[in-house]
């Protein structure tokens, strides 16, 4: 019985939160890694793209709620998401047009593009603050729980409870769908293959008649769609706060580098690796140890939650030290 309780506790406090957080990171890291693979720079504005998109989604959600449209048990934000993606994509394609394209045509050093992305980050950050403010916003409506602690206890008779929130389940489902669609696109479609070809060997892709500007536009579109989805899911799961999206940049970069920059499959794996490490290291294991018959003195928490970003950082450093191309061999350039 205690063994079962321990298992349920691990599921409830570690596996489920880490899986949904990992899925959010994976979506973010996919965008970073795609942009890196095609445009060859680390996009510092990615976190604020997530925030900007999520803010638009929230505004649209409020609008839909005001006119009484909803999705029943599912959050209304899901309905607002496509509109949020479309608006953000327009903005991002605009930034490509007025900012990045110039440096691309000049073949500037990657670090100049990174710098330009910092400028874009500032503007997007300011715009987000302007349209929605800096306060914490909760926008998850509909049903809260798919499985609540009480239900679970009643069903199983275990003392330890387990809950699965709708936002968590939704995150996992949406991420799985997005990844499936993305990999199908990259591996099966002509445009997707052209993207991979461009990422592999830019000059040869040009010789083969692939239009670089089309590939770049497509990349921004996909990365934006993934970013806005990730931002919305993250906001639904936790809450929306502008500054959190700046901070999530580090775990996202760590995930992309762990998986190998430029490697989409690696980005997904990296997202889950970072999330599971972060949750495992900051979770107090005392409860589980007690179930297993130990009587620990302290909380058995390796690191306090405030330091969760240190976990990403340590993972990042370890990968840079031992395998700079990432676990799944990205670009080493």
């Amino acid at each position: 019985m205690d063994m079962l309780n321990a298992l349920v506790a691990i599921l409830n406090f570690v596996v489920i939160p880490a899986a949904s957080y990992g899925a959010q990171l994976a979506l973010g890291a996919l965008g970073v890694t795609l942009i890196y693979g095609i445009l060859r720079f680390s996009n510092f504005a990615h976190g604020d793209t997530m925030a900007f998109g999520a803010a638009l989604v929230i505004l649209i959600t409020w609008g839909l709620q005001a006119i009484g449209i909803g999705l029943g048990p599912l959050p209304t934000a899901l309905l607002a998401l496509p509109f949020g993606i479309a608006l953000t994509a327009v903005f991002i394609l605009g930034t490509d047009r007025v900012v990045y394209r110039f440096y691309r045509s000049k073949r500037s050093a990657p670090i100049i593009l990174v710098m330009a992305s910092v400028g874009v980050m500032f503007i997007m950050n300011g715009l987000t603050r302007l349209i929605i403010g800096v306060d914490e916003i909760r926008f998850d409506d509909g049903a809260r729980f798919l499985v609540s602690v009480q239900q679970f206890r009643a069903w199983t008779g275990l003392s330890e409870g387990l809950s699965l929130r709708v936002s968590q389940a939704l995150t996992l489902v949406v991420t799985a769908l997005a990844c499936w669609a993305l990999f199908r696109f990259l591996n099966r479609s002509r445009a997707g293959k052209a993207m991979r070809a461009y990422s592999d060997n830019e000059d040869l892709a040009l010789l083969s008649g692939i239009d670089p500007e089309r590939v770049v536009r497509l990349t921004w579109l996909i990365a934006t769609a993934l970013a806005v989805t990730a931002g919305t899911l993250y906001g639904l799961d936790k809450s929306f706060k502008v500054f959190n999206y700046f901070q999530i940049l580090l775990p996202i970069f760590a995930a992309a580098i762990v998986g190998g920059l430029g490697n989409p499959l690696g980005a997904v794996a990296g997202g889950f690796i970072v999330a599971f490490s972060e949750v495992a290291v900051t979770y107090p294991w005392r409860k589980i140890a007690t179930y297993l018959g130990f009587e620990p003195q302290g909380l058995l928490q390796l690191l306090s939650t405030e330091y969760k970003f240190a976990v990403s950082f340590v993972i990042l450093i370890v990968v840079l030290l031992f395998r700079p191309t990432g676990l799944f061999r990205g670009k080493s350039v």
Binding site: F41, P110, I111, P324
Partner: peptide, 23 residues
């Protein structure tokens, strides 16, 4: 390593140092 790696690593150490001071 690549030039962006320093940017990302320093972004991390910056956040961590501030987190240490805060906690």
């Amino acid at each position: 390593l690549r030039s962006d790696y320093l940017a990302i690593a320093t972004l991390g150490i910056g956040e961590i140092i501030v987190a240490v001071m805060r906690n």
